[in-house]
């Protein structure tokens, strides 16, 4: 059974380099773990300007409430993916990733 291992910084580096596209099996397992539906809020992006600017927001699963905006704004979707990955890593590891 695949389990999160906070020493596998190689997977974080792989994701940072390639957030989309072909992933190693272990990174794909990690992403499936991070994306497992559960009762906790999850992150989405709100389009401010199509193709140009997005704001990070959170949603409650099954909620009738619209997404709640954060103060994080992105002009690059890769940066947004990496930011969300870091947040999820920190939640699983109990500590921040040791690199940006």
């Amino acid at each position: 059974m695949f389990q999160f291992d906070k020493t596998r910084l190689d997977l974080a580096r792989e994701f940072r380099a390639t957030p989309w596209g072909e992933h190693s099996p272990d990174l794909q397992y990690l992403l499936s773990l991070m994306r497992r539906p559960g009762p906790e809020p999850y992150h989405v992006l709100i389009t401010d300007r199509p193709g140009e600017r997005w704001t990070l927001a959170t949603m409650q699963p099954g909620s009738k409430s619209p997404p709640r905006r954060t103060n994080m704004v992105f002009t690059d979707l890769r940066a947004a993916e990496w930011h969300v990955f870091r947040l999820r890593w920190a939640r699983l590891a109990g500590e921040e990733l040791p690199f940006e």
């Binding site: 989309w20 999850y42 997404p67």
Partner: peptide, 20 residues
């Protein structure tokens, strides 16, 4: 309404004010 969408789409979900 669920993180399941991101799981099979492989990207953080993007929506806008009309989706809201």
């Amino acid at each position: 309404l669920s993180l399941l969408t991101e799981r099979y789409q492989g990207r953080v979900m993007v929506l806008d004010e009309i989706d809201s």
